[in-house]
Design a protein around this nucleic acid. Structure first.
Lengths: 227, 227
DNA sequence: CCAAAAGTGTTACGCCTACACCCATGG
DNA sequence: CCATGGGTGTAGGCGTAACACTTTTGG
């Protein structure tokens, strides 16, 4: 074992806080749990945890997510490191925010409820502890940036979805109305949605085609190449 | 003094690494210093430092920047936290990358040279230690995003500059040629550059007007409002 | 005078927006 | 048959790219 050459420097508690986005009832929601002890008892909190010696920040975020939702292989992305000296009044703790995108499904919700957690619409958040509101806003901005560049239907809606499903999701993410016809043309022109041929009749009598997201590279195997 | 409620958790070394961008000889450059000891002796390194108990990440980045350049009030922005377990072979150190924009000037360069530091063009970087190459690439991407949305002439060129100066800076940032006429029209249409009336004759016989960046809000005091 | 940079004008094209309009069908 | 959501078509506006053109002036 080598001597630690950095001994003279401070060591710090490092945590991760997860902004877990889900989509339900045509609303973008965030999973929060109620803080049951002081300080800030009664306020709501993101799911978080301390980073261990032998895990990366991403590992820690995945662990936190797994513990509460039971899900693995979830899309997540680092957002920002928060480090104000008194952000946690109990001790000096830096926290790195991650956001994650998951499908809200009933069976998962049981596990969620066990922890007392609850899905809150981003448009109607409760009082939050520390800097957690900032964390959510930072994450929402990043999500908007991502959604503006690529289609995130798969993560929040499931494997197949109608164009209207996707439009409503985008309206929830960007918190504004979107023209249905223009949205359809724009999305389809990106060439990453594959029509499954099946129709969904839950929303209309005519029925809407269900699409599947196909990553750009895979399309080379499907679309014929002219010569 | 309260008891520390988090005692059971690990503490970590946390560092910041600064990607210091400058502009010189029509090239975007990064300030690096040569590592004089093993491991990775002879390779080049970003300017970095450990985060103290009583400072934020931003504070630490400002301190590092001040120590090497003697400059304060520099524009800087957090980029990403790197946390691979073996990224520093000597110990487990997480590092948060910041990028900064500074004007390269001769007097500052003396201080820089004292430390053995050197400006390297981003298009022609030397071998770097650890994950510092990734840090620079992440930072460059962020810089491009920022430059795409707002004008960053002031930070890298100085208080006044010609449209051609700015065009060459943008060509350095985006590493591609830009049409002069279109660039001029686009930049001026943003309405955030104010013509000083003075001309710079260094680059041409005709002379080019020097412009000053004026933040959007201040323009309300200058541009008359029609009724 | 003329090379070279500064600055203006012109045209074409692609994308986005707004909105009118058809289609299909369950009740 | 008709209200409702699914889906298509079209015209105008705007920003951009490409590039031709005019202006200025030191050497």
């Amino acid at each position: 074992m080598h001597a630690d050459p950095y001994k003279i420097h401070s060591r710090h508690y490092v945590a991760v806080d997860c902004v877990i986005f889900g989509y339900e009832d045509e609303m973008l929601k965030v999973l929060l749990y109620p803080r049951g002890f002081e300080p800030s008892e009664g306020n709501w909190s993101l799911l978080g945890g301390f980073v261990d010696e032998d895990e990366t920040l991403g590992d820690a975020a995945r662990r936190v997510l797994y513990n509460i939702t039971g899900l693995r292989n979830i899309y997540q992305e680092q957002v920002h490191a928060f480090s104000a000296l008194k952000r946690d009044p109990a001790a000096r703790v830096m926290s790195v925010t991650y956001y994650a995108l998951i499908r809200i499904r009933q069976q998962d919700n049981d596990l969620v409820r066990e922890h007392g957690a609850k899905w809150w619409p981003v448009a109607d958040l409760p009082q939050l502890i520390f800097d957690h509101y900032d964390m959510i806003m930072h994450s929402l901005l990043r999500l908007q940036q991502k959604a503006g560049v690529e289609i995130i239907g798969r993560e929040l809606l499931g494997d197949t979805f109608t164009i209207t499903n996707l439009k409503k999701l985008y309206e929830a993410i960007f918190q504004r109305e979107i023209d249905a016809g223009n949205f359809r043309k724009k999305i389809l022109s990106l060439g990453v949605l594959q029509n499954t041929g099946r129709k969904d009749k839950h929303e209309s009598k005519k029925g809407a085609y269900l699409y599947r997201y196909v990553p750009p590279d895979n399309l080379l195997n499907i679309v014929p190449i002219y010569k």
